[in-house]
């Protein structure tokens, strides 16, 4: 194991630039509340893994979506489990991100020079909520359809341009297959990619600025 890693590292060189990060002294006053960010990241990775598995069987079309979820649930080995796993990691991700935000707030770790990292973190939370909203439509069942009908209608209440925002979100006047594909694309391509970039920025800044210890 170690040999293979050393061989790869001697060419690829991930260890050297991260040496300071990996061997950094950890400040006083770090406790288990500081795990929340890491835990959120773990849940995000779990979402990516289970999501990639679901996308093997899921069919994002008006006619097929619901049946493909039924098939996934009943016929695919471990299908029901992976679905539940995806759902629960999404819920736990939201919980841990909120708790992580509260932790950072209490420790005043948003103060300079860490403002930009607070902003990156807040955007991650918003994107996570967006993923939850778009993912809710994918099963294309009664609850999914009506929740999206109500949720997207909210955009139409914006004065003057509401109607056009609504069309943009729905890909037409009504919640149809066009909406489903839009949401699917957001859910599995746009949001995860943006999330990866934001998290990369997040970790880059932590590496640079270190963790703020103490109250």
């Amino acid at each position: 194991m170690g040999k293979i890693f050393d061989w790869i590292d001697s060419r690829f060189g991930v260890k050297q630039p991260h040496k300071k990060f990996l061997e950094r002294p950890v400040p006083e006053g770090v406790n288990y509340a500081f795990c929340l960010g890491g835990a959120s990241f773990v849940f995000f990775l779990m979402l990516v893994c289970s999501g990639l598995m679901l996308s093997i069987y899921y069919v994002p079309s008006e006619q097929e979506a619901f049946m493909s979820i039924v098939r996934l649930n009943n016929d695919v080995t471990l299908g029901a489990f992976i679905r539940s796993f995806h759902k629960w990691s999404a819920n736990l991700l939201i919980i841990t991100i909120i708790l992580h935000t509260i932790r950072v707030f209490i420790y005043k770790a948003y103060r300079p020079p860490r403002e930009l990292n607070w902003i990156a973190g807040s955007l991650t939370l918003i994107i996570a909520l967006g993923s939850g909203f778009t993912g809710y439509l994918l099963p294309w069942d009664q609850k999914a359809y009506w929740a999206t009908e109500v949720g997207t209608s909210m955009a139409s209440t914006v004065p003057f341009i509401g109607k056009y925002i609504l069309y943009l979100i729905r890909g037409g006047e009504d919640v149809t297959g066009a909406t489903l594909i839009r949401f699917y694309s957001m859910h599995i391509l746009y949001f995860p990619t943006i999330m990866f970039l934001l998290l990369w920025a997040h970790f880059h800044m932590i590496k640079k600025q270190g963790v703020k210890g103490g109250l």
Partner: peptide
């Protein structure tokens, strides 16, 4: 991205 030509009702 904007759905210009969706079917008018």
């Amino acid at each position: 991205t904007y759905p210009w030509k969706f079917k008018r009702k």
